[in-house]
Every structure is written in C-alpha cells, then in structure tokens.
Amino acid sequence: MQWTGLTLSIGMAVAAGLVGCFALMRRMALASDAMSHVALPGIGLALVFHFHPVLGGLAALFAGTLLVWGLERQTRSSTETVIGVVFSLALALGSMLATGDELVDALLGAPGTLGGWELALGLAGAAAVVAFVLTQRNRLVITLVSADIARTSGIRVARLELLFLLAFALTVALGLRYLGVLLMGSLVIIPAATAKHLARTLDQMFAISVGVAVTSTLAGELLASRLHRATGPVIISIAAGMFLVALVVRRGR
C-alpha cells in the first residue's frame, strides 16, 4: 500500500476512535451506523454529475447532519428516531441514484490510488476532528453527564451538539473511500465499545479506542492485500475480533 493511503487511513482511524467514544456515550451506537448511510444520495449525485464521490458524500452528510439536528430540536425526538427517518430516506434516494458496481463500491469502499489533494484534504479533515475532540473533550463530557449542568456552566449545548454531529459526519466521510457507507459506522463504534469494556478512566477509554481503531485498520490493510480480499470487511472483522477478546478479558478480571 502507498504511504499516502497509509497516512490517511491512520488519520481516519484516530478520528474514528475518538469520535466513537462520544458517539457511544451519546447512545448513538446504532444511529452511528445508520448516519453513515446518509452519504449515499451525495455519492449517487456525484456519480451522475461526474464529481468526486467522497465530496458528494461529505456534502450529503453535512446536509443530513443539519437536518437531524434541526428536527431533533424542533420535534424533541431522540437522535436515534430522527436519524432512523433521515437514514431510510437517504438509503432510498441513494439506491435510486447509484446502481450496480457503483452502488457496491459506495457501500463497501474502493480504496484505489489517492491523489495529492485527496490526501491533503483527508488529513486536514482528520486533524480538524482530532483537534475538536481534544479541545472540547471536557465540555462534551459534561454535556453527556447532564445537559443542565452544562447549561448552568455556561456551555452552549445546542451549538456543541451540532459541532459534534458535524465532526461525526466528517469522520464518516474520511472513511467512505476505504470502508464504504456500510462499514464506516462500525469503525466508529466497535473500537469505542471495546475500550468501554477495558477502561477504568476516560483517558484510558480514549487511548484504547484509538489503539484498537488504528491497529485494526493497519492490520486489515496488510492482511487484505495478502488474502486478496476487500479491505473494509477485513478491517471490521479484526476490530470485531478485538471486541470479543475484550469481553473475554473483562470476564477474566
């Protein structure tokens, strides 16, 4: 694998490991997976109008995020409910716009060769997500513990939640090329779920989650090329294997 691809996949994995901890704490485990499907109509439109699918996916994810955030605030429905509705609509639209092999690539990822601008844009996106999580970590945690504590501490909860959802959407977009719409949500959630079983403190949870995401991504890429299999499913299988090992380790404690 090229060093450009390797660098970007490490950036994507670090972002996924960090964002996943907060997604899990917000009880968005299933919603995370569904949210990644919101990229589909954008990828479909990109294919129809011949521009880069990841840019189409990113635009759709951002639009979907704003829609989810707005509906959540207006209807007082849970994130899971709103994402469920938006996800179904996105899947229907995406399936109409993309067909055949294009749809399979969008769903399962097709790494191919990375251009210079793609690498730069991807790394900038990963750096933005990591910087957001590291600087807003304490505020995000307080908001999760109690939104009222956050509000009385002067934290603008609605704005912070929107920023988190945008960071989440950006993380999903980073992985579209490697893992596709179907599997990227899994790389956000499985490492965080593994970390939750092993960690005693928040710092440990972040470290373990990032470690699992990066290890499974690197090992997956290495193994996939040797086994001549698609990269995404191998990465997720390794991550899921680590989750199962964590369950056994936890039981043994």
Partner: peptide
C-alpha cells in the same frame, strides 16, 4: 461510563 469520582469532581473546573 468510566468516570472516577475524582474525574466527575474535576468537571466542575471546566468553566
């Protein structure tokens, strides 16, 4: 979630 009592208390310093 894996918060210790010390971490929960430290959250009060965030503002």
């Amino acid at each position: 979630w894996p918060f210790t009592a010390g971490e929960v208390t430290l959250m009060g310093r965030v503002p």
